[in-house]
Amino acid sequence: MPLGSGETLRLSEKLKPFRERVKELSGEDVGLCYQCGACSSGCPLTDEMDLLPSTVMRMVQLGVEEVLNSKTIWICSSCFTCQVRCPRGIDVANVMEALRQLVLRRKYDRVSIDVLPPEELRELPQIALVSCQRKLTG
């Protein structure tokens, strides 16, 4: 069967909703991604990630919901370098936020500032604490 006939990559109906949910939440058409890797090559945080941003994009395309278990979505700092570089006009940072939100909305907090020792809390500026909580707690 020739590749591209739709058979080899047909998405199971069961998995489609995940991709649709990400699309809705992020506002990005993940289907446009052609896996050029520009997002991954410019990303400053790949050293800390378990999946490259382009791999995350591929998994979302294929409806692989396990992408929600990846460390990458929490490591992405919304620096928008990928948004500037993507030749398909996709804002990968929006997709990352959608994936974080899908997890955070299950009453999950990635972090809790309660565990920070008081001396650390004192030295951290408000702008760090507010942005951290906005990004990593539900």
Binding site: P44, E48, T81, L129
Partner: peptide
């Protein structure tokens, strides 16, 4: 214009 680490300064 490379990211400084932003809010990761809190937990990372």
């Amino acid at each position: 214009s490379r990211c400084c680490g932003a809010y990761h300064t809190v937990f990372m």
